[in-house]
Design a protein around this nucleic acid. Structure first.
Lengths: 333, 333
DNA sequence: TTGTATGCGTTATCAG
DNA sequence: CTGATAACGCATACAA
């Protein structure tokens, strides 16, 4: 692989000049520039990004950690973020935290060591204090995705999950339901806690007593939804509507209902959360709360980019969820 | 950010010694090692990966280009590949080609410039010759994912799509169907061509004449499936079974059938390809051909890794598809 | 077992 | 406009 020095010899100029044409510096005569360009082409010269980054202390890449490299949430998130990063002439480098503290640390470490110009982090397990310490310690700009750390509010791109939980529950209440159960996500995740809080607020506001027994914690996965439903039944709680903290669990619960010969929504209304692709395919199509995932990725990337180049332009940092009414919910009675 | 020199001063040793303990070289006294470790901890030392890579000419990372950062195929592919790469102590860096020649080139370029130790490429648009030239030109080991370039066979991890097309069509024939239409994928993709070839072979083998009019090319997307079906109808081709080159189009076609008041599989049997997650959720659940995506990612990563460290261990390079029979196909008549 | 010196490929700062 | 040359942070051959 040709180096800048070989090019310089080939073109009969100094390395400095070659560097100038590579970087589009205007202080170089057109004739020399052409000569250098030719030499570069002839030798198939590719600048070494390590050397460049070592010298400039910039990597031209934005790091991103997501929970998983797959799935209906993270996929579109990465996709949309990459689009705007690429448009800015930079590149994105993703790594997965797998909802494990250790892996999350490892992922962040990797990106930091790689000297990314900025980091977009979707962290499930890392506690607030650790994140704050991280931001204090490192000079790399950090964006927090889908999470609110009060001390770092201006770096947080998130959705109002409490409002989403409220919206979902309120929809059921508006349909006349009074006995509403909730399958929560894993409560170590802020999303899950916030949605639960929204559920409680809606109930209280409607003068319905909150009952601990009507809430069961599950894992955001489909089989978990069915199991959770089973637990509700075993507890003998009586409910005509069910708010699931995400679509996967809602689908799991719905399937379980039908397996037991009970119709949805006739026997029980079900509402999910996320509006993943599948939700419009299942039968009955799932009523749910839509999260603007694409916008999420776009804004996070914009924010990161703008911090990098100094122009800390304003971006929307808190998104509102939206109710998507389909066939899995119906009025009570 | 502390450098190796600061650490060396802090620990009263030379930079060489610090380098040794960082890299786990055994030729260093336990007491010195401890002193260095302490100094590192105290200064929060993080080796600069650029400098390291510049010196070693290795990046400890494997590059991967996929079509998209999202979706039921690429998601699991990235996921499984990352797992084994990470287990090997390296890291994966992904970039998307978006089925565009320009972006594919750009993606490969980026990874090459980043001096990845090896590349795993899923290229839709780049022609064989260009790939061959690439492999000749670059010294970086390259693995071709989901594609067979005859000249580079030993670097290709792929599935036998021809066999898959045959399997699907054969299933319909075994059910008694004789009039079988096919919605193909975009024929610039080898997958699509191979599946079509399998379809033809199955027909021929069963003594059924191949009819051009029964085949329509579409785009591997859901609306495309419906449109393609519409075209078949307009052509007035008569068929009792339909083989779609992927699940998305099959689902689109199925929905369209039902919209027009025709039942699946009673009126027409439909079989897809890929076995994406959604296929088991739609109604009727889709009969399809499963591609072992996870294995795909795993083996590609293994192959890449083994080439990097010289031990070019044997890995499975050609996978066989598997028929998954569900409710969307039934016997003729 | 430890230290010295050099090279890795660029960028950037000065002089010319 | 162009050329020397000193960083950049680390690995490594060679000395000690």
């Amino acid at each position: 692989m040709a180096t800048i020095r070989e090019v310089s010899r080939h073109a009969n100029v100094s390395v400095a000049t070659v560097s100038r044409v590579v970087n589009g510096n205007k202080w170089v005569a057109e004739s020399t520039r052409q000569r250098v360009l030719d030499a570069m082409a002839e030798l198939g010269y590719q600048p070494n990004s390590f050397a460049r980054s070592l010298a400039t202390n910039k990597s031209e890449m934005i790091g991103m950690v997501v929970g998983d490299l797959t799935g209906p949430f993270y996929g579109p998130l990465m996709q949309s973020a990459e689009l705007v990063i690429r448009q800015a002439g930079k590149h994105m480098i993703v790594t997965a935290g797998h909802s494990t503290l250790e892996e999350e640390r490892d992922a962040v470490d990797f990106l930091l060591k790689r000297r990314c110009d900025a980091l977009i982090l979707h962290l499930d397990r890392m506690p607030d204090e650790e994140i704050i310490a991280l931001c204090d310690r490192e000079s790399t700009p950090i964006i927090l995705e889908n999470r609110l750390v009060p001390e770092l509010e201006s770096c947080c791109i998130r959705i109002d999950n409490e409002a989403g939980g409220y919206l979902a529950t309120r929809h059921l209440i508006d349909l006349g339901h009074r006995k509403i159960a909730h399958i929560a996500g894993p409560l170590y995740k802020a999303d899950a806690r916030d949605r639960l809080a929204g559920y409680r607020r809606a109930l209280e506001e409607a003068g319905i007593a909150f009952d601990e027994r009507s809430v069961v914690e599950a894992d955001f996965l489909e089989p978990g939804g069915a199991q959770a439903l089973e637990r509700l039944w075993r507890r003998k709680v009586d409910f005509s509507a069910l708010f699931c903290a995400n679509d996967l669990m809602a689908i799991g619960a719905m399937k379980h209902f039908r397996q037991k010969g009970k119709a949805v929504p006739e026997h029980c209304s079900i509402i999910g959360y996320d509006d993943v692709l599948m939700s419009s395919y299942v039968e009955p199509a799932l009523t749910t709360v839509r999260v603007p995932v694409d916008e999420f990725g776009i804004q996070a990337a914009r924010l990161a980019l703008s911090i990098c180049d100094g122009t800390r332009q304003e971006v929307q940092t808190c998104f509102s969820p939206e109710l998507i009414v389909r066939q899995s919910t119906t009025s009570f009675g």
